Amino acid sequence: MEAADNISAVPTTLITGFFGVGKTTTLRSLIERKPEDEKWAILVNEFGEVGIDGALLENLSGDGVQIREIVGGCLCCTANVPMRVAVTEILRRTRPDRLLIEPTGIGHPAGLIDELRSDGLADAIDLRAVICLVDPRLIHDARIQEAAVFRDQVAIADVLIAGKADLAGEDDIARFREWARNLFPPKSHIAVAAEGNIDYRFLDLAPGRYAVGAEGGHRHNPAETEVQRRSSGSHQFERIQSAGDEYHGCGWVFGPDFIFDQGAIADCLGPPGLPGIEAAGAALRAKGVFRVGGDWILLNRTGAECTVGDIAYRRDSRIEVIVPNGVTADWDRLERALLECLKS
C-alpha cells in the first residue's frame, strides 16, 4: 500500500450492528482497557452530516488513541474512495498497533470487507473476526428482521453478541441464544455483554475457519465427527463428516479462492435429486453459501424445495447435507459434482 509506507498486517476489527445496539459504548469500553504501550486507531462512520459518535469518544482521544470520524456517507459502499483514503491516512499518521472500525448502523458491511481485502489495503491490515452487536429485546421484531442491512450484518459476523444485556430480561437472552445457535453459517462465538463490556480477546480472533456444525450450528452432540483435509489442484479445502441423533451428514468448507458457477451449483444441489444421494428428495437439508464471482449466494434446500438468494457473508464457501440414517450417501460422488461446478 503505497500511501501507508512500510505498514503491514495491522490487526483490524469491524464492530457492526444496527442503530442503538451499543457499538460506541463498546468502543469506549475497549479503549478504556487498551494496553498502555499500544497505539490504537479508531475509524467511526456516521451516515448523517452531524457527527455524534465521534463527539462521544472525543475525551478518549490522545494517550495512544487516534479517532477519525467520517460523516455524511457510508463506509460500506463498494469502491468507496473516502474509506480507502481514511484508512490510508489514519494508518500512515498513527502507525497503530490496532485499528478498530465502526461502520454506520445502516451500512451493509460486505462492501467494506471486500474493499479492505482489495489490492492496496489487504497487505496493510490483518482483518480479524467481524463482531456484530444486536439488541436481544428486538431480534424478533418484524421490522428489524425485514431490514436487509440487519440480515447482512448478522450473516457476515464471526462473533455475535447480545449487547445491552443489562436492559434485557432472562427470556430475551434465552431467545437470543436459541436464535443465534440456529443461524447459518454458524458463528464462531455467541456471547452476551452488558454496558459494552465484551470479551477483549475477541479482538484477536482470526476470521472463523471452523467445522460445519460448530457452536451455533443446528445439530447437537454429534456422536462422531471426521475432518479431512483435501485438495483440488493447488487449493485446499475441508470435508467434515458427522453422524448422530438419527441422522448423518457431510459438509465442505472452501476458501474464498474457490469461485463457483451459480447456474451449475443451483442445478447440482436443486431438485430433483442430489448427486450421490440414494433417492430424490431424501436429503433432509442441503444448505450452503457460495462465492460466485464478485457476489455470494445462499442456497437452501429442504426436501424438494430449493431457494437461492444473495447473502452478505464473505468468509468462505461452505455446504452441508444431512440425511436420515439408513439413506445411502456417496459423499465422494457429491464432492466430485461440487468441484465440477467451479469456474474454470
Score class of each variant (00 low, 15 high):
residue 156 I to V: 15
residue 11 P to K: 03
residue 196 G to S: 04
residue 118 S to Y: 02
residue 82 P to I: 14
residue 63 D to S: 14
residue 61 S to V: 00
residue 41 A to I: 11
residue 137 R to S: 13
residue 26 T to N: 05
residue 284 L to H: 12
residue 336 R to C: 09
residue 37 D to V: 09
residue 143 R to E: 15
residue 105 G to K: 02
residue 170 E to M: 06
residue 94 T to I: 09
residue 207 P to M: 07
residue 1 M to K: 03
residue 176 F to D: 03
residue 118 S to P: 00
residue 300 N to P: 00
residue 40 W to F: 14
residue 133 L to Q: 09
residue 6 N to H: 07
residue 307 T to Q: 08
residue 197 N to Y: 03
residue 93 R to Q: 14
residue 243 A to N: 05
residue 326 G to Q: 04
residue 151 R to C: 09
residue 321 V to M: 03
residue 329 A to E: 00
residue 291 R to V: 04
residue 334 L to S: 03
residue 144 I to W: 07
residue 103 P to Q: 07
residue 240 I to D: 04
residue 25 T to R: 05
residue 154 V to W: 01
residue 20 G to R: 03
residue 217 G to K: 14
residue 211 A to G: 08
residue 189 H to D: 14
residue 296 W to A: 01
residue 160 L to S: 06
residue 158 D to N: 12
residue 136 P to R: 13
residue 114 D to C: 02
residue 21 V to F: 07
residue 232 S to V: 14
residue 127 L to R: 01
residue 73 G to F: 15
residue 165 A to M: 05
residue 321 V to I: 12
residue 21 V to P: 00
residue 81 V to D: 11
residue 199 D to I: 01
residue 251 G to P: 01
residue 213 G to W: 10
residue 120 G to V: 04
residue 39 K to C: 14
residue 112 L to E: 12
residue 27 L to K: 01
residue 252 W to Y: 03
residue 176 F to I: 05
residue 22 G to V: 00
residue 313 Y to E: 13
residue 314 R to H: 12
residue 15 I to A: 07
